[in-house]
C-alpha cells in the first residue's frame, strides 16, 4: 500500500472506432439519382406554396413548411457558380485528396444552391458568378458522382 512513484502514467489510449452505417435515400433522393443514372438529367421539386424549385428535392419547403412533392420538374444542368473554395487542407479519412475545388451552383430554373466539385479549370481561373455546366460521368452508379463535376460553360 501507499504511493508507488515508479508506476508509469499512461498518456494516451489509441484506438480506431469503427461504426458501420446504411443511410437511406428515401423516395425523392432515390428517384433523383435514378434519373441521374439512367437519363443524365437533374430534377427538382416545386413548393406548392411559394412555387420555388428545390434541387436536390426536399420533402417540404423549409420556408413555407408546405409539401413539395406534387410536381417533379426537370431542371438544367447549367447554372451560375454562387461561391466556391479551393481546398488544400488535408486530414485523416478525407474522402478526396486535396487540392480540389468545390462550390455552390445555382442551377438555371431553381431557387436554391446545389453543392458539387469544380473541374477542368485552373484554380485561379474560377470566379464567383461564372457560368458552369455539369460534366456527366460515363459510368453512372446512381450517386452524387453521376455528375463528375461542374466545369466552366463552353
Amino acid at each position: 500500500m501507499g504511493v508507488n512513484k515508479m508506476t508509469e502514467i499512461i498518456k494516451s489510449v489509441k484506438r480506431t472506432n469503427y461504426v458501420p452505417y446504411r443511410w437511406v435515400y428515401g423516395r425523392d433522393l432515390s428517384r433523383f439519382f435514378l434519373e441521374t443514372k439512367n437519363n443524365q438529367k437533374l430534377y427538382g421539386v416545386r413548393c406548392t406554396k411559394c412555387q420555388k424549385v428545390l434541387v436536390p428535392p426536399a420533402e417540404v419547403c423549409g420556408v413555407c413548411f408546405a409539401p413539395t412533392y406534387k410536381e417533379w420538374i426537370p431542371v438544367s444542368d447549367h447554372g451560375v457558380l454562387n461561391t466556391y473554395t479551393v481546398v488544400n487542407l488535408s486530414f485523416p479519412g478525407q474522402p478526396t485528396n486535396p487540392p480540389y475545388a468545390y462550390g455552390l451552383v445555382h442551377l438555371d430554373g431553381t431557387d436554391n444552391l446545389f453543392s458539387h466539385m469544380i473541374g477542368e479549370v485552373e484554380f485561379d481561373k474560377i470566379k464567383p458568378n461564372m457560368r458552369v455546366q455539369a460534366v456527366w460521368n460515363p459510368d453512372p452508379k446512381g450517386d452524387l458522382f453521376d455528375i463528375k463535376y461542374f466545369k466552366p460553360e463552353e
Partner: peptide, 16 residues
C-alpha cells in the same frame, strides 16, 4: 429505393 452503405471510422487518442 437506394441505400448508401458506409462507415464512420475515427482514430482517437483518448487522454486518461
Amino acid at each position: 429505393y437506394r441505400v448508401l452503405e458506409g462507415n464512420i471510422s475515427v482514430p482517437y487518442r483518448w487522454t486518461p
